[in-house]
């Protein structure tokens, strides 16, 4: 579940990074890793559906 990154209300809202696993070619679980929800949600919304990391086309030579 989403939770605050700290007691200060100005702190960013933090969520589990695994929510954004879809963009990674190999999907792994890291339940302790929290990320800034506002930033990552915005990124996730804007990325093309077929976007993946790493860029295997560039890395395959």
């Amino acid at each position: 579940m989403p939770r605050k990154g700290g007691d200060d209300v100005s702190e960013p809202y933090m969520v589990i990074g695994d929510l954004y696993n879809r963009i990674f070619a190999v999907q792994s679980s890291h339940v302790d890793l929290l990320v800034n929800y506002a930033v990552w949600n915005r990124i996730f919304e804007q990325l093309p559906k077929d976007y993946t990391l790493p860029d295997l086309e560039v890395l395959t030579f």
């Binding site: 696993n21 990674f24 190999v26 792994s28 800034n36 890395l59």
Partner: peptide, 23 residues
């Protein structure tokens, strides 16, 4: 501006050597 520190931890973790060896 977007601080790289907002992005880097997740990318580094998910693209660790065991998941992205070519990188």
């Amino acid at each position: 501006e977007i601080s790289k520190e907002w992005i880097r931890p997740l990318v580094v973790t998910k693209l660790a050597r065991e998941y992205a060896p070519l990188l």
